[in-house]
Amino acid sequence: MKELNRRDFIKTTTATSAGVVTIASGITLTTYAARPKESDPVTNEKRWGMLIDTNKLTESNIDDMVNACQEEHGWGNETHSTGDQKAGWIKKVKVKDKATERISNLALMCQHCEEPPCVDVCPTNASMKREDGIVLVDRHLCIGCRYCMMACPYDARSFVHETLTDQKTHMPRGKGTVEACTMCVHKVDKGEAPACVASVNSDAVVFGDLYDPTSKINQTLKKVQSTQIRADLNLNTGVRYSGI
């Protein structure tokens, strides 16, 4: 083996370092370039939606959904906020028909409207709707004016009332900004179902592309009677319910 002199040493290490850089930047490039391969680019050819069948959904199912959401996104551990100040991305709602006294239980979260009032009123475009129908808050643009919370007909949004620690890396949250159900966009983009949907073992909650005629949600919606909460507002929600 050839003895390594000073000049060769410098040459070799330089080449190696350059290689690392190349590999590193290659990795970076691959990471960005690979995303569209994992899931299709966000287009308006898809519309993500959810169908919740309250006849099949049990109360413990709803508790599981709430817990799964909390675990996935890390909300609900606020220590200083009290009562209505606590975050609530999804909640259990029990309703009784005034005439028949029939009781239904359902999970209520952001309904991912096609015409979202929160997006209309947001002064800074922080509230936005993706092409595929998922309604999100850009926490870098949110100034914390809470106008979206005034406008939302579903009480679906929460304002962060305190400093937070130990946040999930995929779901940064911030004091003074507004947040809500993201339909687990980080999972959906990887081809997975939202956490709450995955937590229910029966077909009480179906998730999928509303536009795709081969999807289960599309086919089920064609068969069963379903409704939108406050359908009279013409917001065309992405979350639908049957049995209420």
Binding site: K92, V95, K98, L108, Y154, I229
Partner: peptide, 13 residues
């Protein structure tokens, strides 16, 4: 807000 017209909300809101 009137979330469920014709219904009474017992829990959650």
């Amino acid at each position: 807000m009137e979330l469920f017209p014709g219904k009474e909300i017992l829990e959650g809101y």
